[in-house]
Simulated assay, not measured.
Amino acid sequence: MVITEVRIKLCEENNERLLAFCSVTFNNEFVVRDLKIIEGTKGTFVAMPSRKLTDRCTHCVGKNHLRARFCNSCGHRLDENRALRAADGRAKLHADIAHPIHSSAREKLQAAVVRAYQEEKERAKTPGYVCRYDDYDSDYEEADAAITYGGVVAEMGGKVLKAHGPHQPAQRGTHMGQPADAPAVKARTGDEFGAGIL
């Protein structure tokens, strides 16, 4: 694993624990976005992108976040202590989407991100500073998707494609691809399966 680029987006100073967001590029081929640089009790650390964990209501089987006290679907009261607990007793409310498999990879990633964070803080002090974190969207647009909406031509990854025009409303009683002069669909009687559906 070679970390080829780290981009940092510094947070406002009034945010006490969240210091910055970060994206990491591996081998100039794969990007992981939305890592968080957080000031913890034992120093600065990198939190991986994660999703909220959910469970199902025992009453209606609706999905709910683990912090929910009532079901979003039926309003049934939920057990507030239903989340799994970590070794330190804290509830496990999020699961990493992308993360290193072993500790040496995590240490390597964290060291690169924290180093880039310190460099970005120094760059932010210079006049005319511009954050490069949001450049990925424009990189993608320029390299892979120069699309003209309402036009005829689209370019995708260097290949020229023909764009289709706006969708035309289907004529009543016709099917996609069916010529307008084709025989009309037979109307169903009241006792056939699907009667009344046109």
Results as ranks from 00 to 15, higher is better:
27 N>S: 12
14 N>F: 10
15 N>Y: 12
78 L>P: 00
24 V>D: 01
40 G>E: 03
24 V>E: 02
89 G>A: 00
58 T>M: 07
81 N>M: 08
80 E>S: 08
100 P>S: 09
64 N>M: 00
50 S>N: 13
120 E>R: 02
77 R>S: 11
18 L>F: 11
49 P>M: 05
34 D>M: 08
106 R>S: 06
94 H>M: 11
96 D>S: 15
107 E>M: 10
64 N>S: 04
71 C>L: 01
33 R>F: 08
74 C>W: 07
84 L>D: 11
68 A>L: 02
62 G>T: 02
62 G>R: 04
73 S>D: 09
21 F>T: 10
20 A>L: 08
90 R>K: 14
42 K>E: 15
37 I>V: 14
96 D>W: 12
98 A>D: 09
28 N>W: 08
124 A>G: 07
91 A>T: 06
91 A>H: 05
49 P>A: 06
55 D>K: 06
92 K>G: 00
98 A>G: 03
43 G>V: 05
28 N>M: 01
113 V>G: 04
120 E>W: 00
67 R>S: 07
91 A>S: 12
50 S>T: 13
23 S>L: 05
60 C>L: 01
117 Y>D: 05
108 K>E: 13
118 Q>N: 10
78 L>Q: 02
123 R>S: 07
118 Q>R: 11
89 G>S: 03
42 K>T: 12
85 R>A: 05
46 V>D: 06
113 V>Q: 01
40 G>W: 03
106 R>V: 07
65 H>T: 07
107 E>K: 15
80 E>H: 07
42 K>F: 10
25 T>I: 12
119 E>N: 08
15 N>V: 10
19 L>W: 04
54 T>D: 09
83 A>I: 05
10 L>I: 05
62 G>D: 01
117 Y>L: 00
46 V>P: 03
94 H>Y: 14
92 K>A: 03
97 I>R: 13
15 N>P: 03
17 R>L: 10
86 A>W: 05
87 A>P: 04
73 S>W: 09
41 T>S: 14
24 V>F: 05
20 A>R: 06
63 K>A: 05
56 R>L: 10
37 I>D: 01
41 T>R: 14
33 R>M: 12
110 Q>M: 07
38 I>M: 13
93 L>N: 06
45 F>L: 14
101 I>F: 10
63 K>M: 04
43 G>N: 03
41 T>D: 15
47 A>D: 13
117 Y>E: 04
82 R>L: 01
104 S>Y: 09
51 R>T: 13
109 L>D: 04
10 L>Y: 02
32 V>H: 05
116 A>R: 06
70 F>K: 11
41 T>Q: 13
39 E>K: 15
121 K>L: 15
76 H>V: 02
77 R>Y: 00
12 E>I: 00
120 E>C: 05
17 R>Y: 11
9 K>A: 07
37 I>T: 01
29 E>T: 11
116 A>T: 03
15 N>R: 15
62 G>N: 00
66 L>E: 00
13 E>N: 12
16 E>V: 15
37 I>Q: 00
76 H>Q: 10
74 C>T: 04
99 H>E: 10
110 Q>T: 09
94 H>G: 00
23 S>G: 11
11 C>G: 04
68 A>P: 00
122 E>F: 04
97 I>G: 04
90 R>E: 11
102 H>Y: 14
119 E>S: 06
56 R>H: 13
70 F>H: 09
124 A>I: 08
84 L>K: 14
